[in-house]
Design a protein around this nucleic acid. Structure first.
Lengths: 209, 209
DNA sequence: TCAGAACCTGTCCAAAGGTACAATGTACGG
DNA sequence: CCGTACATTGTACCTTTGGACAGGTTCTGA
């Protein structure tokens, strides 16, 4: 498969050539769109010289053409990884990744996989769990809630006030409070803030401490 | 690489053999530990006949031995995928995946990748973003916060009360309130609940509506 | 049929949260 | 030196929240 490296410096061209003898390197960041438009394989985007603000946009631009985009960062970090994967890249590695690793990444990406450093991968999965739309096995306490209580809890999870909940469920504010008291008890939280966080699988102050 | 299929039925053995001529199939779910202990390659775990409650445990058991575990489900769904990936598997596909796909998955997994159906992959990344510990480029409003305000905001994001925040930062409750007012304004939220959610990148009631 | 659960509501009250108006001190760039 | 941004606190006041106490209905399973 074709390999296209987009980089401002070209310093690492040799290394890349070593990983992929037929690799192409485009040394112009100005027209990422143009460069990727012609690509038919994996696009490797060196973001080491980019401004923080333009990274996401550039990745999105490169990914827009359908080819898998692997981001190569100077100082890989979790925050950036998440942001750029979200912008459409399917890989995230160090600019100076060794040839063997580059080939591994290519293999994974070529076959529809997603490649990030192993430690990040774990984090990914763990974090995703927190925002699971169906917190099935995560929150055993949720099963204790009655239908009505669950409705109230979900509203709180989205930041609604008692008045809003009352209107939404067409009941009195008093009743909302009653449900809330029951919920707090069952979910073992002390107020609506902690409930909102718990509903979203986010550990709270007192949970940690 | 060695391929070990653990399945209760053995119906699909042919298909697997087609994908990997040298594939082994262990037709006993009882001793997943035993079966995987001997494995040296990829472990394919057929969970189609398992009880919902034991799926996660079985996956964890299989993964405990260090080999990459790919889960094969009868009716793949998001919730299950997340749960089982969290239990240690590195792949999640349909039990009846075609041989070509099986080989692709094997390729990805062998090289340290994570394989889930494309649509799930997207979801993964998107969801993870919400719980990013460092919501760097996600929340432009966060940059507007002063150092002190950020400290307060982070406490609220973990469910702390005004009193607790005051103690933690060694300031008056009054000052906490002052910071909070500024934060609400800058982050465009109306109370601490919405702030807590915003800090965790969770859309709120009023945001959606 | 009776107990219990779930649901709904009322009044009263205390605590927590939030805003308005106001002031003081500090640090820093023009 | 002055203006501006930041951090801090005070008083007063209103709103929201949450608990206590008390009571209704409806439905279901033993």
């Amino acid at each position: 498969m074709e390999q296209l490296f987009i980089t401002p410096s070209g310093d690492l061209k040799d290394r890349w050539q070593q990983a992929f003898p037929q690799a192409k390197a485009a040394v112009e960041v100005a027209s990422i769109g143009e460069a990727t438009a012609a690509a038919r394989g994996i696009v490797w985007l060196d973001i080491s010289q980019m401004d923080d603000s333009e990274k996401a946009a550039n990745v999105a631009a490169a990914a827009a053409f359908g080819c898998p985009v692997v981001v190569m960062a100077a100082t890989p970090n979790e925050g950036e990884a998440f942001a750029l994967m979200n912008s459409g890249s399917v890989g995230y590695c160090h600019v100076k990744a060794v040839p063997a690793q580059l080939r591994e990444i290519a293999l994974v990406v070529e076959h529809g996989g997603l490649w990030v450093p192993p430690e990040l991968m774990q984090r990914f999965v763990k974090l995703s769990l927190r925002v699971m739309p169906t917190p099935a096995p995560t929150q055993p306490e949720l099963n204790e809630l009655t239908a009505r209580e669950l409705m109230v809890a979900e509203q709180v999870a989205h930041g609604a006030s008692n008045r809003e909940i009352a209107e939404a469920l067409d009941i009195t504010e008093r009743t909302v409070k009653a449900h809330l008291s029951a919920i707090f008890e069952k979910m073992d939280v002390r107020d609506r803030v902690q409930l909102a966080l718990a509903m979203n699988n986010i550990p709270t102050y007192t949970t940690v401490n």
